[in-house]
Design a protein around this nucleic acid. Structure first.
Length: 491
RNA sequence: CGGGACGUAGCGCAGUCCGGUAGCGCACCUGAAUGGGGUUCAGGGGGUCGCGGGUUCAAAUCCCGCCGUCCCGACCA
């Protein structure tokens, strides 16, 4: 009889491990419809904290929230040639309503460029109406062949920012700015380091001029596209007649950007930080930052410990932490479950810090703090518990980012590599490979066909190697137009 | 849509080959003891065996059809 208390280890089967963590930590569950999932309170709590942080960042960069409808006239999707080509195969279409066949089918939004820019066209007359900086929190539907919890589901939650600008340069700046916001969020809040850069034409968003992306490395050394920001040029403005009277006269088409991150980030969080004991949530995103587990024998001790736990909770929540708000503390007062069992459960759920509080501690006016990330134990005085916990949480947050970055760098290759060795690597343990690319789509697709690895990004300057590669990974061509690319297998 | 595996209690599974009153572990409920890393004992509740048909005195088990899920591919945030 296998011990069903133990998780499958990451080494044994990373996919199985991932599914088990998501299900057993109660982040999500399968729904009756293939490819759809229910996001449970533990998962949604993380998403809510992500939303709050991101939303604040969007507001701070001048954006406003709005809401556009789920249903879009099918004809809208067809206006932009590349857009429809990219999305048509995975669109869900409503053909009937109220028992009658519709005159024009409605598509369920796979993304909202078309409906949003058609509305922008109504609202923009003058350069004075620009820039228009909007964001919406919404669900979208894409009829994927193969789905995975959080990483790819038929329906998912996301935010999509959409902006219109008077000039190319302004729009370009916006697209880059939001990519930077994403990176700050992923590193600062999720403790998930990313490589930023530009996508190749093959990987570009359908309808965009340029696509920028954040790519993170998961613990199986595969890349996860965690967020994208698109410079749309005037492609959508032209087909939706989004134009304005310019400052010096004449009608001009606006320049658009769009950018989004989704609940996929939760999958990224799991695969970045999880371990063989379960989930590890970085403190800033943890719905519960500290769980107090009281330890007792008699009923008398039990009530004493619970009373003490309440006192500590009181002290912690009253303790004024300026940023990011009050400490989120939970007392696990459940009866009939031994402390050890509680430890395992909270570790599975990824609560960043635990406090063990028993009679022996109380005698010494202390509690024992245990870090989820390192399992390191340390007693703290109950007099200074606020500062100590807040400081420990900050350290955990920082250490998680450092550890993730070290793991990524450890699994990145920046030295010259032969194509044979590259194939072998991608066939085996994988990783990020920084190598030269001659810029030809042929080399790109051949590598994809032969190794399943793709160019994740053409990295931004700060990620470039000290020594620029001088030859194409595939064709070996040398000379001026060789650029550095990050190759990896992707989710 | 191609290849593979599977569908039996909330979850994980055995039973199917060889037809004969549906079982195990965990979870759940009750009681007692226990309590510093997954407690123990006793008692208890819960199942149209994925769905539909067929063979048979008798089907979870054999036959036919359908549906669904997961994994591996082609498509993708």
């Amino acid at each position: 009889m296998p011990d069903d208390k133990k998780l499958t280890t990451r080494d044994a089967d990373f996919s199985a491990w991932y599914n088990e963590v998501v299900l057993r930590a109660e982040l999500a569950d399968y729904s009756p419809v293939r490819g759809c999932m229910v996001i449970r309170p533990n998962g949604y709590g993380i998403w809510e904290r992500m939303q709050r942080a991101l939303d604040d960042m969007f507001k701070a960069t001048g954006h406003q929230n709005a809401y556009f409808p789920l249903l879009i006239p099918e004809s809208f999707l067809h206006k932009e040639a590349a857009h429809v080509e990219g999305f048509a195969p995975e669109v869900a279409v409503v053909t009937h309503g109220g028992g009658k066949k519709l005159d024009e089918p409605l598509v369920i939004r796979p993304t909202s460029e078309t409906i949003i820019y058609s509305m922008f066209a109504k609202w923009v007359q003058s350069y004075r109406d620009l820039p228009l900086l909007m964001n919406q929190w919404a669900n979208v539907v894409r009829w994927e062949m193969r789905t995975r919890l959080f990483l790819r589901t038929l329906e998912f939650l996301w935010q999509e920012g959409h902006t219109a600008h008077a000039t190319h340069d302004e729009a370009e700046e916006e697209a880059r700015r939001m990519l930077g916001v994403y990176r700050d969020f992923m590193e600062g809040w999720m403790a998930m380091p990313v490589i930023t850069g530009q996508k190749t034409d093959a990987e570009r968003f359908a309808g965009a001029v340029r696509t920028y992306a954040c790519e993170a490395m998961m613990q199986d050394n595969k890349a996860l596209q965690a967020g994208t920001s698109h410079m749309l040029g005037q492609n959508f403005a032209k087909v939706f007649d989004l134009k304005f009277q310019a400052e010096h006269g004449g009608q001009e088409f606006a320049w658009n950007t769009s950018w989004g991150v989704s609940t996929r980030l939760i999958g990224g969080l799991v695969m970045t930080h999880g371990d063989d004991n379960g989930l590890r949530v970085p403190p800033l995103l943890a719905p519960i930052e500290l769980v107090i587990v009281p330890i007792y024998k008699s009923d008398e001790e039990r009530s004493r410990m619970l009373e003490a736990a309440e006192r500590v909770t009181q002290r912690l929540t009253e303790w004024e932490r300026r940023d990011p708000g009050r400490l989120r503390v939970h007392v696990d007062a459940r009866e009939g479950i031994k402390p050890g069992a509680k430890y395992y459960e909270w570790e599975l759920r990824g609560v960043p810090v635990r406090m063990e509080l028993g009679p022996r501690d109380l005698e010494k006016n202390q509690g024992v703090l245990v870090r989820r990330d390192s399992r390191e134990k340390r007693p703290v005085s109950l007099d200074t518990v606020g500062e100590d916990v807040a400081e420990l949480l900050m350290r955990v947050q920082e250490d998680m980012l450092i550890a993730a970055r070290e793991r990524r760098e450890h699994n990145s290759i920046r030295h010259r590599i032969s194509y044979g060795d590259f194939r072998e690597l991608m066939d085996g343990k994988g990783g990020f490979v920084y190598a030269g690319w001659c810029g030809s789509p042929e080399c790109e697709t051949q590598i994809k066909d032969e190794t399943k690895a793709t160019i994740r990004v053409l990295p931004d300057e700060e990620f470039l190697s000290a020594e620029t590669p001088s030859e194409c990974l595939k064709c070996g061509k040398t000379g001026a137009p060789i650029v550095e690319a990050v190759w990896a297998k992707a989710y």
